[in-house]
Design a protein around this nucleic acid. Structure first.
Lengths: 131, 131
DNA sequence: ACTTGACCTTCCCCTAGCTGGAAGCTCTAT
DNA sequence: ATAGAGCTTCCAGCTAGGGGAAGGTCAAGT
């Protein structure tokens, strides 16, 4: 398989696949013409990567997960620990974003949004007021 | 005021303040010794920036907001539009993260997390299963 | 006067995770 | 033979700064 085909099948841009090779996540063989020659193994890994990335795992998390994925003797606790840590980060982000959402919603509600210059949003961001 | 003092007062690292000057958000004067000489004006702007950034506005949003902040004749509708757009993006992110949270929570719950190798998390990320 | 330490300056490289584009080779079809 | 698609490498850039080197400056203490 050439890169175009794996790109379609894994649902990842060719650029991304080359990047993943650069950083050592996959090691495709080469044809005599220099083209990358992907095996099923790499297609599986790329699919795995696409899914893990879609769940928001960092590249380093993916690297670790991929290693565990290939290690038939791994313990599920190791995987669960990574996933749980990541879930914690996601929940923290949700919490932070909800705080922003709340504040912004209040400000937007308080702003007339017409052609007059008075604006509670800017007032709140500006120097005169507290946060 | 030197950079150290504005850094403390605005709650922004000196590095960040220099960066904001680089990208043209502030234009502090210079003392004869080459040190940046900040006026109240810049302190206000930096405080404004710190607050807007804390609400997750991008630098470009901040640039626009800052311009509106300084324009006494602006209409509040312009500000509200930026804020509303940003709120939309925040809500989209929250939604995406909640999807991830849900999926991950299911997977984590299904995983024994012991020293046996069988792991629903990896199974789900791997080639055999659908998403 | 001298030294020490804190503070300031510019400069360049580094981060994550790619994306875009240039220059050039290869393959396939006509 | 040639066009166009597909492949290659390399270089640059994006966000929003952070780290650290090399060096100038200021204020206090001895």
């Amino acid at each position: 398989m050439n890169i175009g085909e794996v790109s379609t099948r894994a649902g990842l841009p060719a650029k991304t696949i080359r990047y993943y090779e650069d950083i050592g996540l996959i090691k495709p063989l080469r044809d005599t013409n220099g083209y990358r020659a992907f095996r099923q193994q790499e297609l599986h890994k790329l699919t795995f990567l696409a899914r893990s990335r879609a769940l928001g795992f960092s590249i380093e998390d993916c690297r670790n997960l991929l290693q565990l994925y290939e290690d038939q003797g791994r313990s599920s606790a190791d995987v669960k620990a990574i996933a749980r840590d990541h879930l914690g980060q996601i929940e923290q982000k949700i919490s932070d974003l909800k705080d922003m959402q709340k504040t912004l919603t209040h400000l937007i509600d308080a702003c007339a949004g017409d052609d007059r210059p008075d604006c509670p949003i800017l007032n709140s961001l500006g120097v005169a007021q507290g946060s």
